[in-house]
């Protein structure tokens, strides 16, 4: 106990990256392998930064918080989507393959435009509290009470960081670009649960009651199995499906 666990290192990692720069007309998708000396507690954030600083400064990737909370660094790590910043290389084999998340617009190399996709999803599903009372809110008055347990349940669903892993892990989303993904469906359940949101099931049905919404989901559960925040996606989608069948 009370020791920072370290592993004997000394491996030379081979990091194979799918590279492409759509802004360069001459660029074609290709795999490039970089060799990196593994260090103690090395994450993919550290490894990729090192590659950019020491080997290839043109390498593109997205990191912001590097602490697993902002959702910027989703990428395909050895075949599956995950957050690169909190992936320790010691948990990976010596040969690591990295690719950008599919289903999102490629910006370059490992950088994809999840922001644009998520904004589109938010606009389409109107992922905000719809309430008549928001106009002319009395900011001086005591806040309305809420059951503590309900607040905790809401936070449970609110923990989504829109990293896009669930979309990249979803077979449906690979085939249908307009599918809202687990991220969108989860947010609908979050607002549906929130008593501050005055929308009815009929209104939610208008948003997700079709093949691009909850009825497009084929229950492949890639989302459930790759969500970095362990959100209860399978449970929420099943719940929403039952509600939407009733509302349909």
């Amino acid at each position: 106990m009370n020791q920072i666990p370290v592993q004997q290192v000394g491996r030379t990692l081979q990091i194979e990256i799918l590279r492409h720069n759509p802004y360069d007309p001459a660029s074609k998708p290709r795999l490039q392998t970089f060799e990196v000396e593994e260090a103690d507690a090395m994450t993919l954030f550290i490894a990729l930064s090192e590659i950019r600083e020491q080997q290839d400064p043109s390498l593109q990737f997205d990191f912001v918080c590097r602490a697993g909370i902002c959702g910027s660094c989703g990428m395909i790590i050895n075949g599956r989507p995950g957050l690169a910043c909190r992936t320790l290389t010691r948990n990976l084999p010596q040969r690591i393959t990295l690719a950008p998340l599919p289903a999102f617009e490629l910006i370059g190399d490992l950088s994809v435009n999840t922001g644009k996709w998520m904004r589109g999803m938010s606009e389409r599903l109107e992922t905000w509290v719809h309430s008549q009372g928001l106009e002319g809110l009395d900011l001086d008055a005591l806040e309305p009470a809420m059951e503590p347990e309900l607040a905790e349940q809401l936070y449970e669903l609110e923990r989504c960081i829109e990293c896009g892993c669930c979309v990249a892990a979803c077979g449906t989303a690979q085939m249908r670009e307009d599918f809202v993904g687990a991220v969108g469906l989860n947010q609908i359940t979050r607002f549906r649960l929130d008593p501050r949101d005055e929308r009815s099931d009929a209104q939610f049905y208008e948003l997700v009651g079709d093949e691009t919404g909850v009825f497009g989901c084929m229950t492949l559960l890639g989302c459930e199995d790759t969500c970095p925040k362990d959100l209860p996606l399978a449970t929420q989608i099943a719940f929403l499906r039952r509600r939407m069948v009733m509302a349909g």
Binding site: W128, L137, L139, D140, A145, P148, L154, Y155, E158
Partner: peptide, 18 residues
């Protein structure tokens, strides 16, 4: 306090007193 109450109305699930 006004900021926090505005955010509460906008949807932040603040933890509550039990």
């Amino acid at each position: 306090p006004k900021a926090i109450r505005e955010l509460a109305a906008w949807g932040v699930p603040w933890n509550r007193v039990q």
